[in-house]
């Protein structure tokens, strides 16, 4: 049984097809790049998997079941938004995660927060957007999940932060778990990917192992992507 499977998945908004017949299998224990330009449909696909949208047709199976309580238990999702209650402080947020997620490791989160020199009593509203994003990454990576879905984790960050984010992902994802990273900044991330999925215009254009693709095309994934989607 696949960790995640999409079968003939379609999503329309007001009769406009955003996702067209997506068929996709994500196995266990891989880091997968969901690569596509802005507006290609990456976020829509991720939101469907996370039950924030409902499919127009087709099916999503997570460990063989439709999105629901069980899938939410095993998927740890980092959206592009800052989603925390701004009135809470970090400590309260940690308690919140601990209360709702049985697989949340608060010791790990506290340790990671310490590395960031963040005072645990800081209110979310007092933190910069960048800091909030780092906090969310820590929260998401501190869950011992089976599937991590990270939507544009590198969007608009400086190189130092980029390294921090990649290190945090690599050093914290649960052994045997899979990580799906959606991004349009391919060069920054391609060396950690096992598999790549090219998404364009609501369709999956290519799925391949990253190294096989490099060997076949004798170029970087970034380069291959550019060739595929010349604007």
């Amino acid at each position: 049984m696949e960790l995640l499977e999409c079968k003939n998945l379609c999503k329309e908004f007001d009769h406009k097809e955003i996702l067209k017949n997506i068929n996709l299998k994500i196995p266990k224990g891989k880091i997968i790049g969901l690569l596509g330009k802005n507006g290609a449909g990456k976020t829509t696909l991720i939101k469907l998997i996370n039950d924030l949208l409902t499919p127009t047709s087709g099916e999503i199976l997570i460990n063989g079941k439709n999105p629901g309580i069980l899938s939410k238990e095993i998927i740890s999702y980092l959206p592009e938004r800052t989603y925390l209650d701004k009135d809470m402080n970090i400590k309260q947020v940690l308690v919140y995660f601990e209360e709702f997620y049985s697989n949340f490791n608060s010791n790990k989160a506290e340790k990671l927060l310490k590395d960031l020199n963040l005072d645990i009593n800081t209110k979310i509203s007092k933190m910069s957007k960048g800091m909030q994003e780092k906090l969310q990454l820590i929260l998401v990576m501190s869950r011992e999940a089976q599937l991590y879905i990270l939507d544009e984790p590198l969007g608009g960050v400086d190189p130092a932060t980029r390294d921090y984010i990649l290190d945090t992902i690599l050093s914290n994802f649960n052994e045997g778990a899979s990580v799906v990273i959606s991004t349009h900044l391919i060069a920054d991330i391609e060396r950690i990917l096992d598999e790549v999925i090219f998404v364009d215009n609501g369709e999956i254009r290519l799925m391949s192992s990253a190294d096989e693709l490099r060997t076949k095309e004798k170029a970087s994934i970034d380069e291959i992507f550019r060739r595929y989607f010349k604007c």
């Binding site: 060396r191 950690i192 190294d211």
Partner: peptide, 14 residues
Amino acid sequence: VRELALIARVNPNT
């Protein structure tokens, strides 16, 4: 493997 992967900043599978 995990530690080595971290040092090299690559995917543990790789």
